[in-house]
Design a protein around this nucleic acid. Structure first.
Lengths: 163, 163
DNA sequence: CATGAAACTCCGAAGGA
DNA sequence: TCCTTCGGAGTTTCATG
């Protein structure tokens, strides 16, 4: 019942292009039933979308780094995420507890691009930066465990169909 | 020509379930031609796979944190990534330059689970930890810019037709 | 939740620029 | 080599019970 939704979510996080036919076979339901469940999981916001995984090396973005930032002037309004959103090198932006305000995950072609990006970050958001270069990535974006206590039914997505 | 591969990659990173029909329409080629290009991008390792994006709140994993680790005894072999791989709460593991050895991105249900996980990390890998809690995530996993200098043709995936 | 049928998509074969 | 067209097999999607 609930178990089946978990199986569906687990299967789709591992392979986002699974056909409903394959999914139905895996979870032991008809194709239509699985299709309905997936649509409801999407509407509830449990499934937020689908993405291809790309090789950043192949895209000529082999250098990954974490950039911790804090405002140069802490009295000014803190809108760093919006001010930085236009920079495509920024993969992710986390607001964090601790000494820094935000932690950015960035991907660039090499040290020269990283330098340019850091200057751009500092001037765009009026912040200081502290950068940690990633040397290698043993693993990344592993599918979460979709276990027994999982799949909170009270959750509601304030969302629209993902485009 | 090359432009088309970039358009395909960009489209699939934004929506990994796009049909070949839609893709073909977007890039102005026949369905078969697009299908061939996608297959080659997959074989070259440019497209590494597809995944559904899930709401971690809905999965009852609302607490994200970064855990920086370094060995308790630096003279011992450093196999922390393998020793920690069995922990499903660990989303990603980065080997980093700087004071720490690895940076982990973890997702848990709450503070109690985080405490348990940190203990497990320390004992499993014989490391000390320094944890930064994520308060909110303005954005995450944005599609990379797939621009003019992009899509390195020299890159080879693990399997390659003999040439 | 299952069935079934229509519409659509996938995917390889064959041929042309 | 890369594209296109074409057709059978498979998939998606919806109405109905």
């Amino acid at each position: 019942m609930e178990e089946i939704d978990r199986a569906i979510v687990a299967a789709l996080t591992a392979d986002g292009r699974l056909s409903y036919t394959d999914l139905a076979e895996r979870v032991g339901l008809s194709v239509s039933a699985v299709h309905q469940r997936v649509r409801r999981l999407e509407q509830r916001g449990v499934l937020k979308g689908y993405a291809a995984r790309v090789s950043f090396e192949a895209l000529d973005l082999p250098l990954t780094a974490f950039v911790a930032i804090r405002p140069f002037d802490p009295s000014q309004p803190d809108d760093a995420p919006e001010r930085l959103a236009h920079l495509p090198e920024i993969d992710s932006c986390y607001s964090v507890a601790g000494e820094d305000f935000y932690l950015l995950l960035v991907r660039v072609a090499g040290p020269a691009d990283l330098e340019r990006l850091l200057q751009e970050i500092r001037t765009s958001a009026n912040v200081t930066t502290r950068t940690t270069v990633v040397l290698s990535t043993p693993y990344e974006h592993r599918p979460p465990k979709v276990g027994p206590d999982t799949l909170n039914h009270r959750h509601r997505g304030s969302n629209e169909p993902s485009a």
